[in-house]
Nucleic acid binder design. Structure first.
Lengths: 338, 338
DNA sequence: GACCGCGATGTTGACGTGAACAATCCTGGG
DNA sequence: CCCAGGATTGTTCACGTCAACATCGCGGTC
């Protein structure tokens, strides 16, 4: 018996079952050409010793870890969490484990630290989710590591999976215009965020096509708190009748601010969010929003990554776009006649 | 140069630097007794070759992976996500990686699958978060694996970290009684959940101490959707003036249902949640709730786990209790005189 | 001038696994 | 009854790393 810390090895099992270690290996990898009774004897021995294969040794032997890394910032947020779920599910379906690296603060230095940590990790590939402020240079990833990214300024440098930001934005803005609103205000995300910029651009473009001059966008930082803070100023502006928010959290904060200032939603002001977080349907009134299929994004990320890991060479510019969808609920209505 | 797939090995670096592989190893592990100029030469060679240590080989050699597993169910939910964040942060501070295993459906079979997968994973210890329906038998974990658990029926079988469910519950119920409510209804979580049961017990005990007969609890499944569904029935009952909900999501669903039925919150009905999710502060009205410090729970889980991994033997009954705290916001008020 | 002590470096081997190759065993055809 | 050939099992070895031990060389001591 091997030492207690490490547990039984393939040798211990072989000895107990009276076969060679290679036969044990064959049983444990499910290879062919093992007689049923031999297999049974080996399995019994494994069970008796509580054997489970040593992952490190396998990884060393095979030159692959069966694991992918996931680099995210504050993945407590709905989008990150759901995408992570999608990644984990898809990876598990392919028998890959997922190792999490969370970057607490989005400053460049932290991304570098994270990348540094990663180069010591046991992974075959890396998924980067919303590395908003990270640049390819600031990352310094180990050479030869397979990488895919989601929305961020890394798109273009690595194969990427994107939500259809523009399509979703147009649907939202057009929905408000169709209801009869003269113009649509925008509560945007941080300036250094790529998805936020795309949503600003889409909103502006859509208004211009409709022959409306876009007002200055309001700025939040994705949090409900920022939506509430900025919302207090928006609520004070009687001209505002429709606001397209860059995410649901800010939209919910905005709605609270509007309520508190006595501006009714949707009668006085219409609000549209983005993401379709689970709670959006149950706030009062339920939130009109643009749904992103985060699970699908996660799945596509894994697909693209494993293609690379398995030897496919992908163009670094390759991208997959996942559709978005307008979900009309209770926070949008035609403007009141005045 | 080794083959391109694997990248440079310690041998390649040694050759290039004109030293033995052992010297390279000493440099890369930061061992003493290396002359500065030798060290510099080795570092240069590492840089040139883009060398990074092979994690599998190290793990094999050291008999430890430098990684812990995290077994969770639907970790998109706030509690799971925040606890996970806490675990990841604490683990990173100790140079441990975190490998995620998500159980999609809470049925026993899925937990078994997950445990099965885990026994093939490269981890030194395992954190189990809210394994609500899992039992020690259904898990069949590899022998000798260090394990800690958070709230679940596994508590008692492994060292555990718990939120002060009872204390939080009493604070919530007492707050409502103090406001003058005759009794407090309870919107509970699923019957097979341990934290849900604890909250039911605490609520019932607190009412009985106050000399009030506890009404039958209402049952949800933690989701806002269930809170809304059950809430429609609660709203129809004019006798209900105060509801303590087992989590914030259900509370938010309940509030929407009350709004829609024309029952004002908090004037007609007071509502208290549990967890203090980020959005709770920004719904309208902002949610009175019981805060759990999920990050602290995550940190304690890691501390307890690494104590084990590093050779401390812990009593399986050991438990750490993390305090909870009542946060009074806008959904609670004295009952209206009728 | 031989020798000691110690810092710096090299050599050896083992961690657990599974591919490649080698050695049996058995079955059925001739 | 013998042999070809597939099925089954065994042997050897290398994956990359680092601990243990061995060796080398240099300055200082008696």
């Amino acid at each position: 018996m091997a030492n207690s810390r490490r547990g039984a090895s393939i040798q211990d099992v072989a000895r107990l079952a009276g076969v060679s270690s290679q036969t044990v290996s064959r049983v444990s990898t499910g290879a062919e050409h093992v007689r049923p009774d031999t297999r049974a004897r080996v399995l019994e021995a494994m069970d008796l010793l509580g054997y489970s294969p040593n992952h490190a040794a396998r990884a060393l032997r095979n030159g692959a870890f069966g694991a992918i890394g996931l680099l995210a910032h504050r993945f407590e947020r709905t989008g990150e969490a759901l995408t992570t779920e999608g990644v984990v599910e898809a990876a598990q379906a392919e028998d890959y484990a997922v190792t999490l690296v969370d970057v607490r603060r989005p400053e460049a230095g932290d991304w570098q630290d994270a990348a540094q940590r990663l180069s010591h990790q046991a992974i075959d590939g890396l998924v980067i989710i919303r590395a908003e402020t990270a640049t390819p240079e600031s990352l310094a990833l180990p050479a030869g590591l397979a990488v895919v990214v989601s929305d961020s300024r890394l798109v273009g440098h690595y194969p990427a999976v994107l939500a259809d930001q523009l399509g979703g934005t147009r649907a939202a803005v057009q929905h408000l215009l169709d209801l009869g609103h003269r113009t649509v205000h925008h509560l945007a995300g941080p300036e250094d965020s790529d998805p936020a910029s795309l949503r600003v651009a889409g909103w502006r473009g859509c208004l211009e096509e409709a022959g409306v001059r876009a007002p200055e966008p309001w700025r939040g930082d994705w949090t409900a708190a920022s939506g509430y803070r900025v919302g207090q100023r928006i609520a004070a502006d009687d001209d505002v009748t429709a606001v397209y928010c860059a995410n649901d959290e800010m939209a919910i904060g905005l709605v609270r601010a509007l309520h508190e200032r006595g501006r009714r939603v949707p009668d006085d002001v219409s609000v549209v969010g983005f993401d379709d977080i689970a709670l959006g349907e149950f706030t009062y009134p339920p939130l009109t929003t643009v749904r992103q299929d985060f699970h699908a994004i996660g799945r596509e990320l894994v697909r693209l990554l494993l293609d690379q890991v398995r030897g496919q060479t992908l163009r670094t510019g390759q991208r997959v776009v996942v559709p978005t969808q307008l979900v009309v609920r209770g926070t949008t209505a035609p403007p009141r006649r005045r």
